[in-house]
Amino acid sequence: MAKTLTLEIVTPDKMVLKEEVDYVGAPGINGEFGVLPNHIPFLSALGIGSLYYKLNGKKYYVFIAGGFAEVSPAKVTVLAEVAEKAEDIDLERARRAQDRAEQRTKQQQEKQEYAMVQAALTRALHRMKCRQTAIGEGTCRA
């Protein structure tokens, strides 16, 4: 019986993370789900939000946008389109993206553009939230 989980987060650009962890909480497309070691095999699409894992009682956060996660008893593989560790998130940039998106929501838009702007806004907000939660947990420098 596995006592820990191997968490692997891979994006098209690089391997973001590979670590032995105690617990993983991920933003599934149908709501958040938690994974402990010896979880039943499971495959889920991921939404936009914060993924966190517990290691030695501390919670670490990673921002995730799109992709999916495969869970096996001793391993969680996350294939995300975008993944950023809380400490790598650029708050300034996220804030600018938020401003830009909010500006554009005020203008008249096509349906498709509206969806794009909304998605950008959601990403920006979740990025900031992810980093702030991590700072709150003390696993990321302010």
Partner: peptide, 27 residues
Amino acid sequence: SSEYLFEPSVEGLLAELLPRYVKVQMY
């Protein structure tokens, strides 16, 4: 044969993954 959970359904996942699979191959 082993039990496997899918969220959303297999069909839903495939619908999302297959187009991306093509692009991943191309990339």
